[in-house]
Design a protein around this nucleic acid. Sequence first.
RNA 1: GGGCCCGUAGCUCAGCGGUAGAGCAACUGACUUUUAAUCAGUAGGUCGAUGGUUCGAUCCCAUCCGGGCUCACCA
Length: 528
Amino acid sequence: MSSRAFSPADLSAARSWPFQEARALVKRLERMKAPADRPVVFETGYGPSGPPHIGTFGEVARTTMVRRAFEALTGRPSRLVCFSDDMDGMRKVPPHLPNQALLEKHLQMPLTSVPDPFDAEHSSFAHHNNAMLRKFLDQFGFEYEFLSATECYRSGKFDETLIRVLERYDAVMEIILPTLGEERRATYSPILPISPSSGRVLYVPMLEIDPKAGEVLFEDEDGTKVKTPVTGGRAKLQWKADWAGRWFALGVDYEMAGEDLTESVRLSSRIVRALGGEPPAGFNYQLFLDENGKKISKTKGNGITIEEWLAYASPESLSLYMFHNPKAAKKLYFDVIPKVADEYLTWLQKYPSQEGAAALDNPVWHIHEGDPPTDISPVSFALLLNLVNATGTGDPEILRGFVAKYRPNASPEALAAAEKLIGYAARYYEDFVKPKKLYRAPSEQERAALAALSARLKEIGEGAEEEVYHTAAFDAGKANGFEKNIRDWFKGLYEVLFGQPEGPRMGPFVRIYGTANTAKLIDEALAR
RNA sequence: GGGCCCGUAGCUCAGCGGUAGAGCAACUGACUUUUAAUCAGUAGGUCGAUGGUUCGAUCCCAUCCGGGCUCACCA
C-alpha cells in the first residue's frame, strides 16, 4: 500500500463529512468509556425481500467512508457488519417474481423458510437474495462481514438480548405503544414467536411473559396455548424493537439510515437505552430525487438504477456521487453521470499535489479508502463522448487510436486507465448516439467530391502522414466546387458519412481508421 | 398541521464569526488549412427572505418562503 501518512494536525483539520461523522463517533466512544482495543462496529441493514440497489451501494459506500476516516483518525480496529433481516416474515408475495403460487403458500414464514422461487441453487428465497447482496458488495471490493438474522437467532447469539427484552418488557412497551394506532396497540408485542405448528411468524399478543425462565405464553394458530422459550430461534423481535435489539446484541457503534427512517432511529434509540445500551452514532442521509425534484419511485421508473449508472460510468464515479452532500436531497438522473465521471477524474488529478487536510478532504481519499490510484486516464469522459460523437463510431480500436494521438506523452499505465472510459464511451455511443444518426444523401456536387476523395485515398494507401490525408480531403472539396465554401464541404461530408453535421478532423481520422476503411465508408455512403 | 433535513455563481459543491471560493458550463482571444482538443484570459452571486445577537454574520438565534422525508398499516 502506498497510501500517504498524515499528521495528527492534518487529521484534526480535515472537515469533510466522513471525518466529522468519525469525530462524533469518537465522542460517543469516549462517553461510553469503550476500551480502546475493542473493535468498533459499523452496521448497515438490508431487507432480503428484493435485490440490492443503488441505495444499498450508497449506504455501504458512505459507511465505509466514515469507517476509514475513523480508522485514520484513531488507529482503532473496526468491523463493518452487513446485516440481513432474513428472519422477517414474508408479508406479501413480491410481484414480478416467478412461482407466485409456491410463494403464496409460504406467506408469513421467515424469508429463510420461503423456498427460492428462482432456482434450486439456494436453500431459500432469503438465501438467494443474501447471495445477491454479497455478490453485489464483493464486486465493489467492500470489506464487510455478512450476518444473517436467522443465524443470529438460531445460534443463540441474540438470546441474551431476547431475555433482556423480556426483563424490560414494560419499559419497551411504554415506548412503543404510543406510536401505534389503536388497533395495533391491542396486539403488539416486541416478541414475535415462530409458530411451532406452522412455522409462521406470529403477530400475536403475549399472554404471559416469564423473564426468569426466558419463556412466553401465546396462542398458536391452531388455537392451542403454547409456552415456549424465546431463545434459539423460537422467537424474533418485531419491527421497532428489532433494530434496537440488534444494536444491543451486536454492540453497534455506528449506523446511518435514510431520512425516511428518522423517526425509527429516534424510537430505536430510546428502546436500546431501555435495554441498557447506548444508541449508535450516525445520521440520516437524504433520498434521491429525479430530474424534476420528484421522489424516485420504482413503479414510476424515474431516476436511474445502479445498472444504468455502471453501464456508462465507473463505480468510483458513483462513489463520488454518494460522497457529495449526503444530507441534501440529490437529483439522480441520467445527465449527471458524465459530469460526475469527469469530476472524479479532476479530483484524482488534483490529489497528488494536495497536502494535509486538503488531501484528506479530497473525495478520492474517501472513495479509495485512503489510497487513490496514481494512473489516471489522460482523457476526460467528456472528450471521449465528443470523440464518439465526432467520429461517429463507438469502435474501441478507433477511440484508442485517437486517445493515443491526442495524448502522445501518456504513459502505458495512463492509457490502460483510459481503457475503461473507452468502454463506457462505446456503450454510450451504441445507446445514445447511434440511434440518433441521420444520414442524408449527397448532392451531385458532394457525390463527385466524395468519389474523388475515395479514389485519392485508395491511391495514397495506408501509412502516409496525417497531413497528406487531410490535404486530400481539402483537395477533393476544392476540386469539386467548394473552394469558396470549404466549410460546407466538410459539413456535407459529415452528414453523409457520419449522419451528423460535425465530425472528426479528416487527416487524423483517415490515418487511424485506415484509407481502405475510409474509402469503403465513402463508397457505401454513395451506394446508399 | 407537528417533527427532521436541505436552500452559497447556470450545474455540482467548499467555506461555518472578520470585507465570497473551486471544478464544470458560458464568453473572449491565441493556435489548429472544418470539428474537437490545447493554451491564455473574462464575466458571473443583495450566500432563499426578513428581523435579531455582535464592532462585524453566508456562518449564531427567531420567524417566514421553497424543496424533500416523516407522523394508520407494512418494512
